[in-house]
Design a protein around this nucleic acid. Structure first.
Lengths: 190, 190
DNA sequence: TCCGTACAATTTGGAGCCGAACGACATCTG
DNA sequence: CAGATGTCGTTCGGCTCCAAATTGTACGGA
């Protein structure tokens, strides 16, 4: 139902709405499906393995990053996990309360906080990650290994494009104009 | 930096952590990159075109769905936009307050609410969508049209796999056990 | 030693988001 | 035509998230 057909139809309707102004169909389909897939995958993983371990997606990602990279400074963890520093403060404190994560001050630089897993956290990851990876395999079950590689590679190029040229592009678009404040969140100045 | 290399490295570290238990690398890479790409794309679009129009991602998606499909019942809009009914209630009311969306009762079935764009909403979409689509093209600029098609197709298969077999899979995994309540949200019963 | 600057994490404000419970309405059944 | 059952959208509780403002620490030069 909302697969190939409805997306194609949506594109045609969009074109009609624009009175002949051309739409970049393929690029539109990539973005739309990236987002659909991300939601579907996240929801499946949260409702299968993560809920049983009482972890949110973000909490799992944070644990995973620290597990893989070992003791790390919070800003690196936030960057790698794809969340803001502010969010990480809350998440890491929750995980600390649950005894999965340790937060320690840096020995010489008092501004830094180092995150590492507790033994309990390590155990959890040894138990949960294999199940998580099983479900990753499940969601990708309609793709063979080569297709996985090529999809992953295409997505990597999207990420790189944004990381390398996104900032510059945004500046060019605004062209010196005010960056436009965010609707939500704390108000600037006032 | 966090491109091909660091992901591959992460996978090796993960395997080491598991003491030889095999990891499904390619499937893991697909999931990881779907999520990274979704975040990157959303952030870029929010910070470029959407912020200027004072729209969040979700608000834009809702407007887009109603624009494309015309007057629609809320549950269909929620489904198509990939958000819960409860979220849609809030978002649609915000958009109504801003004069972009109309909420009307169904003429014969009093339970339903129909959403449609106001003239102002239509104008906004005619103005914003082309810019949005331009940025979709920008984020996909490293992919040629064929690659776009094949990535989109691969992602579509992921979405279908979850939509068609996800529920069944989750039930099989829990195997009759309690579905494990969500940590957040309103508590059952009590 | 005392600034000023730089950069760290944290706090804070506002919106998003899910899913259980709820109330309103529709429809089926006897 | 009443009650049971089902299906809407809405409400509500708790958590997630971002980014501005804030707080705290480091370190360079006067």
């Amino acid at each position: 139902m909302p697969g190939q057909r409805s997306i194609t139809q949506a594109e045609k309707l969009a074109e009609a709405k624009l009175g002949g102004i051309p739409v970049r169909h393929e690029q539109m389909a990539v973005v739309a499906n990236i987002y659909r897939a991300a939601s579907a995958v996240r929801q499946h993983l949260e409702n299968s393995v993560l809920r049983g371990a009482d972890l949110t997606w973000t909490a799992f990602v944070v644990l995973w990053v620290v597990w893989i990279w070992g003791e790390s400074e919070t800003r690196h963890v936030a960057e790698e996990a794809g969340i803001s520093k502010g969010t990480l403060t809350g998440v890491s404190r929750t995980l600390e309360k649950r005894g999965l994560l340790r937060r320690a001050g840096h020995p010489t630089d008092g501004r830094l906080v180092l995150l590492s897993l507790t033994e309990e956290g390590e155990e959890l990851m040894r138990r949960v990650f294999p199940a998580f990876n099983e479900e990753e395999a499940f969601v990708a079950a309609q793709l063979d290994v080569d297709e996985c590689r090529s999809v992953a590679d295409g997505l990597r190029r999207v990420v790189l494009q944004v990381e390398e040229h996104g900032e510059e592009r945004r500046l060019a678009l605004l062209d010196g104009a005010a960056p436009a404040p965010r609707r939500s969140g704390r108000r600037p100045q006032s």
